[in-house]
Write a protein that binds this DNA or RNA. Structure first.
Lengths: 123, 123
DNA sequence: TTTTATACATAATTTTGTTATGTATAAAAA
DNA sequence: TTTTTATACATAACAAAATTATGTATAAAA
């Protein structure tokens, strides 16, 4: 599980992340079925080895945009006494979500090539 | 050599590129010794399989910023009757340039991991 | 009882890009 | 021969997408 309080120990370029937040959200929800906003930030934080902290100012507008675009659907639930907004991918958004991920994967592949890294399985 | 007029045939996310222009410039100049602006745009275009077209509005401010930061040095040359500004990495900027590339590589590595791709040689 | 964590949200500002515009030379196409 | 395309630089207006700051509210831990 996620352990809080750890500080990033390695260098990381926040700027590279510009444009990756929405794809990341789609990726996580594709993999996990449904997630709520705060959970997404913690999940990304953990998966990135404490390197990426998605800020609220970026997260919530991104989620709202994805819902407006029909790629995500939202369901409100009250847990304890607190509100949670669970996001998932509706059938009607599955195709767009998959296309976005495909596009993102290819773009990362191009970056990998340009910077001289090697992507396992790439031609 | 570069052949003009080809149109991108594959999907590509321009947004993913946000933040990658300066690292790309550093990478290309590190590899090639010295380059001028227009040459950089064509090189990136070719290496990316016609997917990435760096616009002048992004390129020149980025180059000027890198010079201002001491990471690049510029030398003006007249070729034919036209001006070229060659950029290279001065000894005094080598460390910062290498650090920036290292940071970029690690960031791309994190993206690769988050999106479930595999980087050859990664642990 | 104060701080930290959870959970949402928006407004002001900054960063970083695109699009449009500008100057100028050289080569290719109509 | 004239127009278009390519080369080569640059900046200004605008848009997108982030950070930072602020706000509300509950729950748990220090």
């Amino acid at each position: 599980m996620y352990v809080c309080g750890m500080k990033p120990t390695t260098i990381f370029s926040q700027e590279i992340l510009r444009g990756t937040i929405k794809p990341m959200i789609i990726k996580l929800i594709t993999d996990n079925g449904r997630m709520y906003g705060y959970q997404i930030t913690q999940c990304v934080r953990e998966l990135s080895g404490e390197r990426i902290q998605i800020t609220e100012g970026a997260l919530y507008p991104a989620l709202h945009k994805l819902v407006a675009d029909g790629i995500l659907r939202v369901e409100v639930e009250t847990v304890g006494n607190r509100e949670r907004k669970y996001y998932s991918i509706p059938k009607s958004g599955a195709k767009a979500a998959a296309a976005k991920l495909e596009e993102t994967n290819e773009s990362i592949g191009v970056l990998v090539k340009l910077f001289g890294l090697s992507l396992y399985g790439a031609e």
